[in-house]
């Protein structure tokens, strides 16, 4: 074989190898993984359609018991929030008020999101400790205290995804900003004295001490 033809052959071989690599993956770094392997981490629920909601079910009554045991110390027995811990109920009709109360009942647009959040991170000090049935039961109770499920209600994947939250249409999707247009005026942009609107920062006393930490 001439040197020329062996070069062509080698080049063709290289080309074939690189085509195969491209069909495989760019750098070939990382490892294939199956859905079964991912399952323990694959906990996200689609808020809009409940995609990913697991089999299982739970009742308001079961949820009430679990909630009192595992959640009420912070959130209060009826989700009213102990002290400054977050409240999980009420607030409907307050979103336009001077002090709006944003809660599951007044603000959350999609019911499956409650399941997702509670299962992934509550109770606060023992996240990812609730079973699917327990999570359904607690979500049933949370919906009940927000008047969205009757006291004898039972929740599963289908019934949870079917619940229409009161504030479903309360969100403007897509960013309307910039929503203010300012002109970069340089000279004589204002007439008269500066008017101070708010001057309490020093006297309010809400700024932490700036003493050095040792």
């Amino acid at each position: 074989m001439s040197r020329f033809s062996s070069f062509v052959l080698a080049a063709a071989g290289l080309l074939a190898a690189s085509v195969a690599a491209a069909q495989q993956r760019g750098y070939g770094i990382g490892h294939k993984i199956t859905d079964a392997q991912i399952a323990p981490w694959n906990i996200d629920i689609g808020g809009e359609d409940g995609k990913g909601l697991p089999p299982g079910k739970g009742s308001v009554a079961q949820g009430e018991k679990l909630f009192i045991e595992q959640c009420a110390s912070c959130h209060g027995e009826f989700g009213e929030g102990n002290g400054r811990w977050p409240e999980l109920m009420g607030g409907q009709g307050t979103l336009k008020d001077a002090d709006p109360r944003k809660t599951i009942g007044s603000f959350w647009p999609w019911a499956p999101t409650i399941f997702d959040y509670v299962r992934r991170t509550m109770p606060f000090t023992a996240p990812q400790s609730l079973s699917n049935d327990e999570t359904y039961a607690i979500v049933a109770y949370l919906l009940n205290i927000n008047d969205l499920l009757p006291a004898d209600g039972v929740l599963d994947a289908k019934s949870l995804a079917a619940i229409k939250m009161p504030n479903r249409d309360g969100f403007i999707v897509g960013d309307p900003r910039p929503d203010v247009k300012a002109e970069p005026c340089m000279k004589d942009c204002k007439q008269g004295q500066v008017k101070v609107l708010s001057d309490l920062a020093k006297s309010l006393g809400v700024t932490p001490d700036q003493k050095p930490k040792d």
């Binding site: 996200d44 629920i45 689609g46 808020g47 809009e48 979103l95 336009k96 709006p100 944003k102 599951i104 603000f107 959350w108 647009p109 999609w110 999101t113 997702d116 959040y117 309360g170 969100f171 403007i172 999707v173 897509g174 960013d175 309307p176 900003r177």
Partner: peptide
Amino acid sequence: WQHREETSKYTDLMPDGKARQFT
């Protein structure tokens, strides 16, 4: 996904009671 941090939190409530999302 409409998860908690993009609905309950990190949305901007406007005076008309509607909240901007994905800002």
